[in-house]
Simulated scan of single mutants.
Amino acid sequence: MMKKIVFLGCGSMGEAILGGMLAAGVSPQSVVVTVRRPERATELAARHGVTAMASNEEAAANVEAVEGASVVILAVKPVGVTAMCREVADALDSNAVVISVAAAVSLAQMEAALRPGQPVVRSMPNTPLKVGRGVVALSAGSSVDEHHLAAAHEVFDGSGVVLDVPEDQQNAVSAISGSGPAYAFYLAEAMAAAAEDFGLSPEVAQVLARETVAGAGIMLAEPGANAGELRRAVTSPKGTTEQAIASFDKDGLPGLIKAGTKAAAARAAQITEELSAAN
């Protein structure tokens, strides 16, 4: 069981993780959050019952917050992760596990900004964490043991599915699940546009596309569900769906999706290099 948990930064994704933790039974009295603006600190304290501090009011808020913490979650933007690590490094307990939720920031970059031997975990969460249907991939640093990794799992267990992957697979994870919700939304946009081409009103088109994609997602989330099997169950021989799938295949849709994910993964690797050069 985690003791003191600290969020350094708490934007949309950080608050989604925080909400999932609290819903899973973590006591708000064990959580400290730091943000820049006093208004945001007041908002988080009122909404979740946690202790919230504003660095614009108290310059040492981040350092004070991490003292005695067993888990520290870095929920700042990628460009600010290593600077935050350096700011709090000397105040961290040597056994505290530091978890980053920022894309493209490597374990090596974080470990170099912290004291030697500090346990570090890199995570790649996605936005459906906000509705408790997220997926998170964790990669453990060189000083992480099974207890540190278990604590990292506990952070995210209330918000979705948690997987362990080698760090060299994190860019692929980012391209599939990190960016993936946008692909589903893009599909819904395209379906709605197609519906309007048939003469349906924009309002009806939006409902049809939105509820179809959302409903299919719920079916896919059922235990043991398989995307290929579900698709084949809807695709009757010589039926309308079969014609649509054949058209998608002819136009190379699977190849386009594969190319897009490769482009996303390549960009993630490029961002890592840019952040490394900047720090």
Score class of each variant (00 low, 15 high):
residue 155 V to F: 06
residue 152 A to L: 01
residue 273 E to F: 00
residue 80 G to M: 05
residue 65 A to L: 02
residue 168 D to K: 05
residue 250 K to L: 15
residue 271 I to H: 04
residue 269 A to V: 01
residue 111 E to R: 02
residue 85 C to H: 08
residue 222 E to H: 01
residue 221 A to H: 07
residue 116 P to C: 13
residue 275 L to Q: 05
residue 156 F to D: 04
residue 230 L to M: 15
residue 134 G to N: 00
residue 70 S to M: 08
residue 38 P to Y: 03
residue 252 G to S: 12
residue 205 A to H: 13
residue 15 E to Q: 15
residue 166 P to L: 09
residue 28 P to I: 01
residue 138 L to K: 12
residue 98 V to L: 07
residue 209 A to N: 09
residue 134 G to L: 05
residue 157 D to H: 12
residue 186 Y to M: 14
residue 27 S to M: 04
residue 202 P to S: 01
residue 222 E to A: 15
residue 237 P to E: 13
residue 154 E to S: 06
residue 171 N to Y: 10
residue 186 Y to W: 08
residue 77 K to Q: 13
residue 250 K to N: 13
residue 140 A to M: 00
residue 72 V to Y: 12
residue 73 I to L: 14
residue 182 A to M: 00
residue 167 E to A: 10
residue 111 E to V: 06
residue 228 G to H: 10
residue 153 H to R: 11
residue 189 E to Q: 13
residue 36 R to C: 01
residue 165 V to C: 11
residue 168 D to P: 07
residue 78 P to T: 01
residue 44 L to V: 10
residue 142 S to G: 06
residue 94 S to H: 14
residue 109 Q to I: 07
residue 65 A to V: 05
residue 24 A to T: 04
residue 46 A to G: 12
residue 188 A to K: 11
residue 37 R to L: 02
residue 24 A to R: 12
residue 98 V to Y: 13
residue 5 I to H: 03
residue 257 I to T: 00
residue 96 A to Y: 07
residue 148 H to G: 14
residue 48 H to K: 06
residue 189 E to H: 06
residue 95 N to I: 11
residue 39 E to L: 13
residue 190 A to G: 02
residue 232 R to F: 03
residue 99 I to Y: 11
residue 107 L to Y: 11
residue 74 L to V: 10
residue 193 A to M: 03
residue 66 V to Q: 12
residue 159 S to G: 13
residue 90 D to F: 09
residue 50 V to P: 06
residue 120 V to Y: 03
residue 272 T to A: 15
residue 39 E to A: 15
residue 27 S to G: 08
residue 139 S to F: 06
residue 235 T to D: 12
residue 151 A to C: 09
residue 110 M to I: 05
residue 271 I to G: 03
residue 51 T to P: 04
residue 130 K to A: 15
residue 163 L to F: 13
residue 197 D to Q: 15
residue 224 G to A: 01
residue 170 Q to R: 10
residue 90 D to G: 15
residue 199 G to I: 10
residue 103 A to C: 12
residue 137 A to H: 09
residue 211 E to W: 06
residue 180 G to T: 08
residue 126 N to K: 01
residue 85 C to R: 05
residue 85 C to V: 02
residue 256 L to E: 10
residue 75 A to F: 08
residue 51 T to N: 07
residue 149 L to C: 07
residue 131 V to T: 11
residue 151 A to P: 00
residue 18 L to G: 12
residue 194 A to L: 02
residue 207 V to E: 15
residue 38 P to W: 00
residue 130 K to P: 00
residue 183 Y to M: 04
residue 199 G to C: 11
residue 233 A to T: 11
residue 67 E to A: 15
residue 161 V to M: 11
residue 238 K to L: 04
residue 188 A to V: 04
residue 72 V to D: 10
residue 25 G to D: 06
residue 73 I to W: 02
residue 157 D to P: 00
residue 164 D to A: 07
residue 219 M to N: 11
residue 120 V to W: 10
residue 129 L to Y: 02
residue 267 R to M: 07
residue 80 G to Y: 13
residue 84 M to I: 10
residue 86 R to V: 05
residue 12 S to I: 04
residue 220 L to T: 13
residue 144 V to Y: 01
residue 162 V to E: 11
residue 108 A to R: 12
residue 218 I to P: 02
residue 207 V to T: 14
residue 162 V to L: 01
residue 13 M to A: 06
residue 226 N to T: 06
residue 161 V to Y: 02
residue 14 G to Q: 10
residue 24 A to N: 14
